[in-house]
Amino acid sequence: AREMGVIAAMRDGFGFIKCVDRDVRMFFHFSEILDGNQLHIADEVEFTVVPDMLSAQRNHAIRIKKLPKGTV
């Protein structure tokens, strides 16, 4: 199932999404941004959540798609 959120932080090559449906900041890597979009803080996005290979306690966001403002 796809989830929605807002870009909360951007770093060098990765960032975090503030999720709508869960009280966490979800890690993502820039390589998972679809359509070659440039994302910025406060952009609204949808994404798929998958378990982190390195840590069973953590998840991360993949297949991130920018949404029109006002969607979330």
Rank of each mutant, 00 (worst) to 15 (best):
M4E: 08
C19F: 07
I64W: 00
M26K: 04
D35S: 10
T71H: 04
I62Y: 06
I33Q: 01
V72G: 08
A1E: 11
G5V: 08
L54S: 15
D43T: 04
R11V: 06
K65T: 07
H40N: 13
R22Y: 06
L54D: 14
F27H: 11
E46N: 03
A8M: 10
R22E: 07
A1H: 02
H29F: 08
K18Q: 14
K69A: 13
Q38K: 13
F30I: 08
G13T: 10
F27R: 14
A56D: 11
D21Q: 11
Q57R: 11
P51S: 15
V49H: 05
E3L: 06
H29A: 12
D21K: 11
Q38P: 07
H60A: 10
I41K: 01
K18P: 02
L34R: 07
I64G: 00
C19Y: 04
V50S: 12
A56H: 10
A42W: 10
I7H: 00
K69Q: 10
H40R: 12
R22P: 06
K18F: 06
H60M: 11
V24Q: 13
R25L: 12
D23T: 03
K18E: 15
G70C: 00
A61G: 03
K65F: 11
N59E: 11
E44F: 02
G70R: 05
D52C: 14
G70Y: 03
R11L: 15
R11H: 15
A8F: 06
I33L: 06
R58P: 15
K66F: 03
D12F: 00
D12T: 08
E46C: 02
I17F: 00
R63F: 00
R22T: 09
F16E: 13
H60E: 09
T71Q: 07
Q38L: 07
D21H: 11
E44V: 06
M26N: 07
I7S: 04
D12G: 08
F16G: 01
R11P: 01
R22D: 07
T71S: 15
N59H: 14
D21S: 12
G70Q: 01
D52L: 07
F16N: 01
D43R: 00
I64T: 03
F16Y: 11
V45A: 01
H40S: 14
M53E: 12
D52V: 08
E3N: 10
C19P: 12
L39V: 08
P68G: 05
E44M: 03
L54T: 14
F30T: 11
M4L: 10
G15Y: 05
E46R: 00
P68F: 01
N59C: 15
D52N: 10
P68N: 07
K69G: 11
V24A: 14
F30W: 03
V50L: 09
T48C: 10
E44Y: 03
F28E: 15
E44N: 05
F16I: 07
P68H: 06
G36R: 08
I41A: 07
D52H: 09
A8R: 03
L34D: 10
E44K: 01
D23V: 03
M4V: 12
I41N: 10
F28A: 02
H29R: 13
F28C: 01
H60G: 03
N59L: 15
V72A: 10
I33P: 00
M4A: 05
F16W: 14
I17S: 01
V45D: 03
S31Y: 05
H60T: 13
A1V: 14
T48Y: 15
D23H: 02
F14P: 01
D35M: 05
Q57I: 09
K18C: 06
D12W: 03
H29G: 03
E32I: 13
T48I: 05
D52F: 06
T71R: 06
Q57P: 09
T71N: 05
V45C: 01
N37C: 14
L39F: 06
H29K: 15
E46M: 03
I17H: 01
R25A: 11
D35W: 02
V72F: 03
H29E: 15
K18R: 13
L34C: 15
H60F: 09
C19S: 08
L54C: 15
G13R: 04
G15S: 01
K66V: 06
D35H: 04
V72N: 04
V45Y: 03
D43G: 02
L67C: 07
I33F: 04
A61T: 00
V72E: 09
V24D: 15
A1D: 10
E46I: 04
N37S: 13
K69C: 13
L39G: 01
D21I: 06
H60C: 12
R63D: 11
N59A: 14
L39W: 00
D21W: 08
I17R: 01
I62F: 04
I33S: 04
I41D: 08
D23E: 11
Q57N: 13
L54N: 12
A1R: 14
I41V: 13
Q57Y: 13
E32W: 02
I64F: 02
K66H: 01
Q57D: 14
F27Y: 14
I64L: 07
R11I: 03
V50A: 12
F28W: 04
M53N: 12
A56S: 14
F16V: 13
A42R: 09
V49I: 09
M26H: 08
G13D: 14
G70L: 01
A56V: 11
L54W: 11
D52W: 08
R25F: 12
K18N: 11
